[in-house]
Design a protein around this nucleic acid. Structure first.
Length: 634
DNA sequence: CGCGGAATAC
DNA sequence: GTATTCCGCG
């Protein structure tokens, strides 16, 4: 069997799946308009990365109103909605420029679109469009390509990667629809809008995918090849695309955000009978799956997704909790070796560690000190409630096994550490259920890219000299909450013999540490202190400092303030207190693990954290680019 | 124009 | 929770 059938949770197919809302969201809609050439006169990317200008506010409002069936919509109202995004950090206003806003892509979704194809390369960028990263360098790129490699932090942000290509228009699905009542004069329905719901299932996906094939071409045409850093609009600060075969570096313009097809070239076949919205089944070839998993893994790591996210992935073999390290290591080593032979460094397995979630306000109040969440291993019991997750620490290792996946479609995840390892047990529970608002903030993830840069410096010994204050600005750690767990029915996908129970036990507490790829760096599974200090850990002190300055900066800079209500200082203080000792990393807990953030592993594989971040951003772009905002019938 | 509170709708 | 609607303020 070349392909395996997998079921993905419906949220995966829903653009609207952003947490909290089932309906299309404004920002999403905006992105869609931005993506379509036909609306360039109405709204378009302009200025900085992620910055866009609403050229015709009334029209945009009208379109939006049409989409939402709110004929009374106007720019005033729409703008109010946009303003609500400020605190959410999805958007911010570009001061001094009329009708100009800027997306904080870093915060967008991703989590919802783990399937992005990381493999694609990054590429050209439309004007201010996507702030994204050049995909070039990501570790996960499937066909390996040269990483753009370490760009300065600033570059990182500015790096191109625009994925929104006008090409998209081909796939344009009605972003706007006319309300059934036709109140609005618009029927801006576009080509794609074909009747409302009918075939959306099929058509939608298809459209998402097909365009990709032509994208490169289109992109080049439109924006010039990757090799044209010089383009006026090109965000490339420097040519990040050194790699061989420039083409390979290009990202598929329309990559599939949602498409689960990780690769731009890999077709996946949607089940004809199922509507994606309903939770359909798709067939993927092994390659796709690999990428998919890789991407997701990465997402998990980067965005602090709950391990339970893995539940959604088919064919993942869940590691046994008690498995001896030795086995794992050995295997890993072998796999790694094997992999190395045939795959790029980025494929190396890595470990990642989930970060502890922030306490909810309430919780915060109650306990100021440490938050020893009961990390009951068994807590995972509640099937439905991943919430209880507490942590354990197990690690997942992907990569090497992927190769094998091609044949069977199986991907194994091996535990790198045991759950029992008490030291590491600090866990994080990222489950959604938690009452707290982990979704918004806090650095769930340890290695924030920005910090990564610091980290980097530290590693080199040059430590902060180069600290660049602005770097972080856009790199926000906030992330949307992880997608809801897949319906029970999907569970069967785990092919491993491990039963769900084991899965449950494990997932909640997954914790991993980066595995150093072979020679590249630190020895595998090392105690926190060991290899981490210089290269991996970012002292809280630093972080705080950063934050502090960040805040100030924000006020001063135009990009500014995001926090405000979302993240009152109070929280920060709390955070500090709870962390007490400045040295611990976000990861966690006093157990001191300190162990390095995965970055190391990444670095080893050429990709820097920044790159990762960029990639993530790219994902976002792609994802958004691919979204089909179908209009629900009004 | 732009902001953000408040109430309200869904 | 995400808008929509209103609205006063600068």
């Amino acid at each position: 069997p070349k392909t395996a059938r997998f079921a993905f949770p419906e949220w995966a197919y829903k653009p609207e799946s952003s947490p909290g809302s089932r309906q299309i969201q404004l920002w999403h809609f905006i992105l869609e308009l931005l993506r379509k050439e036909e609306y360039h006169d109405v709204i378009a990317w302009q200025g900085d990365y992620g910055e866009f200008v609403i050229k015709d506010p009334d029209e945009v409002a009208r379109l939006w109103g049409a989409r939402k069936c709110k004929p009374q919509m106007n720019y005033d109202k729409l703008s109010r909605a946009l303003r609500y995004y400020y605190n959410k950090r999805i958007l911010h206003k570009t001061k001094g420029k009329r009708f100009t806003y800027k997306f904080n892509f870093n915060k967008l979704v991703l989590v919802n679109y783990p399937f992005i194809d990381m493999g694609s390369t990054g590429s050209s960028v439309p004007q201010s469009a996507p702030p994204v990263p050049t995909g070039a360098g990501t570790h996960f790129r499937f066909p390996p390509s040269t990483p753009s490699e370490v760009l300065s932090p600033n570059e990182d942000l500015r790096s191109p990667g625009g994925m929104f290509s006008s090409v998209a228009r081909r796939m344009a699905r009605g972003s706007v629809s006319d309300c059934s009542d036709g109140t609005s004069a618009n029927s801006e329905i576009e080509e794609g809008n074909t009747g409302a719901g009918e075939e959306r299932g099929e058509r939608g996906y298809r459209s998402i995918i097909h365009p990709r094939l032509t994208t490169h071409e289109a992109l080049f045409r439109m924006y010039g090849g990757p090799g044209n850093p010089g383009e006026p609009l090109s965000p490339f600060p420097a040519s990040p695309l050194p790699g061989p075969g420039g083409a390979s570096l290009l990202a598929p313009p329309l990559s599939p955000a949602l498409s689960m097809t990780p690769t731009s070239h890999l077709p996946y076949t949607p089940s004809p009978t199922l509507s994606p919205m309903l939770g359909s089944h798709f067939s993927f070839n092994p390659e796709d799956m690999k990428r998919y998993l890789q991407a997701h893994t990465q997402s998990v790591y980067n965005y602090g997704l709950s391990p339970r996210a893995f539940l959604q992935y088919p064919n993942i073999v869940i590691p046994q909790p008690h498995r001896p390290d030795k086995a794992g290591l050995t295997e890993r080593g072998a796999a790694e070796r094997a992999e190395r032979a045939t795959t790029p460094p980025h494929m190396s397995p890595f470990k990642f560690k989930l970060q502890p979630p922030p306490l909810g306000r309430k919780q915060r109040e109650g306990q100021s000190q440490s938050k020893p969440r009961q990390s009951s291993l068994s807590s995972g019991s509640g099937s439905g409630s991943m919430s209880s997750t507490s942590g354990l620490g197990s690690s997942l290792s992907f990569g090497s096994d992927l190769s094998s996946a091609s044949g069977s479609g199986l991907i194994s995840v091996e535990p790198i550490s045991d759950i029992d390892s008490e030291e590491e047990v600090e866990v994080t529970d990222i489950s959604d259920e938690d009452p707290d608002e982990r979704d918004e903030e806090f650095e769930l993830f340890a290695p924030r890219h920005p910090r990564a840069s610091d980290h980097h410096h530290l590693a080199n010994g040059s430590a902060r000299t180069q600290h660049q204050p602005h770097t972080d600005e856009d790199l926000d750690e906030d992330v949307f909450k992880a997608p809801a767990p897949p319906p029970p029915g999907l569970m069967p996908f785990f092919t491993s013999q491990h039963t769900l129970s084991s899965v449950h036990r494990m997932l909640p507490t997954l914790k991993s540490e980066p595995i150093e790829p072979g020679e590249s760096n630190t020895p595998p599974s090392q105690p926190p202190m060991a290899g981490a200090p210089q290269t991996k850990c970012i002292p809280l002190k630093l972080r705080f400092k950063r934050r502090w300055s960040e805040d100030q900066r924000m006020e001063a800079s135009q990009e500014e303030s995001d926090d405000k209500k979302v993240r009152p200082e109070e929280e920060r203080e709390r955070e500090m207190q709870s962390n007490g000792q400045m040295e611990m990393e976000e990861d966690g807990m006093g157990s001191g693990d300190g162990d390095s953030p995965p970055m190391l592993a990444y670095e080893g594989s050429l990709a820097t954290p920044l790159a990762s971040h960029r990639r993530a951003t790219a994902e976002l772009h792609r994802a958004t680019a691919q979204l089909s905002l179908e209009n629900k019938d009004c």
